[in-house]
């Protein structure tokens, strides 16, 4: 039972982790608490739904297509709602992300209606039994993909020139610009990467939940809690925060009450804020 909850928590946790990575990237590069993160996940799920279910494209092709579509919409959103506010006051930038989120969410509601769409399972939901332990292949796939992406992102940020430029631009815009880094381009790239990561999180979670216009609100908040938990400045922390949140939520659902699942996630977040504000993996303030 305990191990069961742990495995489930690990899968959902790696999805939270991917979303949390988006928050970390946005916080670093744009210095903003981005309220439209969850809606990026919603859009990703819808793109996969469109390509795979509506247009009946094979899943192996639908995935890259949905990712490309996420990247493109990310680019457009950045131009319309984020780029014009570079240099504006903190609270105005925050409100712009809220406005963008409301706009996107309701645009999808207008296009697809408020009803949830069921999503076919991609990875197989027939459980494998190892003694008493039930393992759903889907959960393993989600965990695997989540971790692989997090590691890829870390390698990208640490090893490639572009990644290093992104980190430099996030750390000190002026100095980075003096070093010949195109700071604005770098910020755009960060936004697109964050949107794609969010989109993939949405695609991974789509078979577990229904796809609907409002799905981004709650998972966006969870991803944010995960980012704070792990440390809003750390890529590794985002993943760790996601896993801890996923497991804590599943344990709370299994042993305390499923009604309080979300409340427990946020209580955990506030406790971390109080006792270790830089997060579990972050440096001490």
């Amino acid at each position: 039972m305990l191990l069961q909850q742990l495995i489930q928590g690990l899968a959902i946790g790696s999805v939270y982790g991917l979303l949390a990575l988006g928050y970390v990237l946005m916080w670093q590069a744009w210095a903003v608490l981005d309220f439209a993160r969850g809606d990026a996940a919603m859009m990703g799920a819808f793109f996969l739904l469109i390509f795979n279910v509506f247009l009946k494209i094979h899943i192996l092709l639908a995935f890259p297509l949905a990712i490309a579509a996420s990247a493109l919409t990310g680019f457009i959103i950045e131009r319309l709602a984020y780029r014009p506010l570079v240099g504006a006051r903190e609270i105005n930038r925050l409100i712009a992300t809220i406005g963008a989120g409301i706009l996107i969410r309701n645009l999808y509601r207008v296009m697809f209606g408020a009803d949830p769409f069921p999503f076919p399972t991609i990875f197989g939901e027939h459980p494998i039994y190892i003694k008493h332990l039930m393992i759903v292949p889907q959960n393993l796939w989600i965990t695997g993909i989540g971790f692989a992406l997090a590691i890829l992102l870390r390698l990208f940020l640490l090893k490639t020139w572009r990644g290093k430029a992104m980190r430099a631009a996030a750390q000190d815009r002026e100095t980075a610009a003096l070093m010949g880094i195109r700071v604005k381009n770098s910020m755009t790239l960060t936004f697109v990467v964050a949107t794609v990561l969010g989109g993939i999180a949405g695609m991974l979670i789509a078979p577990l939940y229904f796809v609907m216009a409002d799905m981004g609100v709650l998972i966006g908040l969870k991803g944010f809690a995960a980012a704070v938990l792990g440390g809003i400045e750390s890529v590794t922390g985002a993943m760790v925060g996601g896993i801890i949140l996923g497991i804590a939520e599943n344990l709370a659902g299994g042993f305390i009450s499923s009604g309080y699942q979300t409340a427990i996630a946020f209580a955990l977040m506030i406790l971390v804020l109080i006792f270790r504000p830089s997060g579990i993996m972050g440096r001490r303030l």
Binding site: L80, A100, I102, N106, V110
Partner: peptide, 17 residues
């Protein structure tokens, strides 16, 4: 109708911009 909240979001983005 349903465009209500879409416009609401757009108004907010335009206002702060």
């Amino acid at each position: 109708g349903d465009w209500r909240l879409v416009l609401y979001g757009a108004v907010i983005v335009l206002m702060v911009t």
